[in-house]
Design a protein around this nucleic acid. Structure first.
Length: 257
DNA sequence: ATGCCGTGGAAACCACGA
């Protein structure tokens, strides 16, 4: 059995004690991180290494930033940009081969305020991602696309859907773009394991959102058929969201054979 | 109904996040 996790850390250096504690306590074999908020040279490489993980990452000053960590198996980078737009300089995608798996780690644009240029950027990014996902899917290999999608897929994935209809995370065109990707044949791992449950991965810092369980499900695992048939479990490390100096996201994980 | 909180970078405020 193998555990693969995704975690939007909201600042990898500010979050380092929480990140290291989580790695120690849950010991994922592979961890995908988003929102490093650190330039390439400020990634805490040594601390991650001392925790037992090799890593590849794509940093950026102040914002964005993605990383893939592996505890046991060698990491072979396949790319660190989402294809399709040489002018897009945001560090929002990194991809690796680990054993027989292809892992894509993504931090999809937020899109707010919407409507506006940020929503257009998000929709353009999703279209590029759809094309890349289609190529990976067609390859037939075991592929996992995971990270912070900044998409609330359905009204069952948000505490008060009516308040989010105009938001870039839940607007009809954004949900439609997500569904268009899913229709390629990907499995939403968390929904497969928990078909009807209320399950969130993000809670705002304010208004006691975590205490009230006023959350969103926006961090996802998309599995190709070759991984789907190996899926044995999934969950959210919900307690981590309650730790001191924690991220506004909780880590999400799957287990596969 | 709302960045009310949090992070990083630069400059004692601002951009950004969801």
């Amino acid at each position: 059995m193998m555990r693969i996790a995704t975690y939007n850390v909201n600042g990898v250096n500010g979050r380092l004690p929480v990140l290291l504690r989580w790695l120690e306590e849950t010991s994922p074999d592979i961890a995908c991180l988003q929102e490093l908020k650190a330039p390439q040279e400020k990634f805490p490489e040594q601390a991650i290494k001392d925790a037992g993980y090799q890593a590849i990452w794509h940093g950026q000053k102040s914002w964005n930033g993605v990383a893939i960590l592996s505890k046991h198996e060698a990491l072979v980078e396949r790319g660190r940009v989402l294809p399709g737009d040489p002018e897009d300089l945001h560090s929002r995608y990194i991809e690796a081969s680990i054993g027989d798996l292809i892992i894509g780690c993504l931090y999809l644009p937020n899109g707010n305020p919407a409507p506006g240029p940020k929503l257009e950027y998000k929709l353009g990014w999703m279209e590029r991602f759809r094309k890349h996902a289609a190529e990976l899917y067609a390859g037939g290999k075991p592929v996992i696309l995971t990270g912070d999608f900044n998409v609330i897929p359905t009204e069952n994935d948000v505490y008060k859907p009516e308040r989010w209809v105009d938001d870039a995370l839940f607007r009809p065109e954004v949900r439609a773009a997500f569904q268009k990707i899913m229709k390629q044949g990907w499995t939403d791992a968390l929904r497969k394991i928990y078909p009807d449950e209320t399950i969130y991965t993000f809670w705002d810092y304010f208004r006691n959102a975590y205490g009230r369980n006023a959350g969103l499900r926006i961090d996802h695992f998309l599995l190709s058929p070759a991984v789907d048939k190996r899926l044995r479990g999934a969950g959210v490390d919900r307690d981590v969201r309650g730790w001191e100096k924690t991220s506004d996201h909780g880590p999400v994980w799957i287990e596969i054979d």
